[in-house]
Design a protein around this nucleic acid. Structure first.
Lengths: 207, 207
DNA sequence: TGTATAATTAACTAAATAGTTAGTTAATCG
DNA sequence: CGATTAACTAACTATTTAGTTAATTATACA
């Protein structure tokens, strides 16, 4: 910072406004003008810090994917065996997704269109997350903790369930009187994570 | 049809072009002009048959939701007990989703934004599908087939997994050499449905 | 056969959009 | 202090967008 004003602050503001709006409305549902207004900055600043709208979007999604992947990896390192690692994967993903509810939205939005416009390095981020679980399952199988499974299906069960649970928070609350506890409107994400782990163990252990 | 040309044919053409494009690009990712060109009709025809873009979108999604809900209900009627009903729910949803891959895309897209712009009757369609599964699980529990579960989580496990499996078809094929069979790129949806049912039974039966 | 009317079209409007540009402010440092 | 430069702004362009309208075509039916 040799001259001028606080650039990192502005850039961060842009990223967080963009993250919030992209998660709620999708890439095409948000205008650059809209992001600028939300961030209380001039629209041209977005083009000063980012090449274009697509680059800003990629920055936002890539940041979230990198963050969660690193978080899972760190937590996994503290574990002693595949069973603990699986637990850690589920709990960490759930907890991160709760703290960053934009991730589930953006992940589902991206996958819903079949990755038609998915840039290569965003795709790489998704692959890394699956790769972490895949290794856990493979190790667990080799060491006799788990039975053989189809890893991608288990992955979709965990990630799909947690993502949907988070994105439907408001919707589930809207129907609580209609479905009582069936819709788990009062559950927090930790409860769900524990539940998914418990149920998943039954799948992975019983032959 | 007292005068004029074939109206139902035109309307149907519009609906199917819209379904295809909305599923691939989302609501905001498709222009009315784009739909018109794809359907080989004049843009004004869309406004002749539908009030506006939002109404066309609702028509498309509602049709898919109604269709699948009726299909599941019909198949369920042929079953003798909750176990069969659950199997039927999973198989029928999977098979419908394969034949109509736009449904998973649109469902995930809609849920990814937290139903922010979800019209009431589209929401009702989603609720009906959950309601069918909820009854199956509740009955199964009462009649001693299943242990007590959190219905919405089981629902997300089934629907989330199948939806992701279908929308990621191309993506999974792109990485088959990287992950071998782990990504199940050669599996058909029936295989996955059978697999999910088998694994789910373990959750629902063992205490 | 002619007329009523449903189906269709081309051309339009007003607003929103992504992206640009030329100029302005403010901080830093010699 | 004053020049350099990074940070910022207002105003612009060209394109795309949802939606409208007035005129036109085609068909059934009396």
């Amino acid at each position: 910072m040799s001259a001028g004003r606080d650039s990192t602050k502005t850039k961060t503001t842009i990223i967080y406004s963009a993250m919030n709006l992209f998660a709620k409305n999708g890439y095409d549902g948000v205008s650059v003008e809209h992001i600028a207004k939300d961030a209380n900055i001039n629209k041209a600043m977005i083009y000063y810090y980012f090449k274009n709208k697509a680059t800003l979007y990629e920055t936002v999604v890539k940041k979230l994917l990198d963050d969660i992947q690193k978080t899972i990896k760190n937590e996994s390192a503290k574990c002693q065996n595949p069973k603990e690692e699986l637990k850690s994967f589920i709990y960490t993903f759930a907890s991160f997704a709760q703290k960053n509810p934009h991730l589930p939205s953006l992940m589902l939005a991206e996958l819903s269109s079949g990755g038609k416009n998915l840039p290569e390095d965003m795709f790489a981020g998704l692959k890394k997350i699956f790769s972490l679980l895949n290794k856990i399952l493979k190790n667990g199988e080799k060491e006799g903790y788990f039975v053989e499974v189809i890893p991608i299906v288990i992955h979709f069960m965990i990630v799909g369930t947690i993502n949907l649970f988070i994105t439907t928070k408001d919707l589930r609350q809207r129907v609580q009187n209609e479905f009582d506890g069936d819709v788990c409107d009062d559950c927090d994400v930790d409860t769900i994570a524990r539940y998914i782990y418990k149920k998943l163990l039954k799948m992975l252990q019983g032959e």
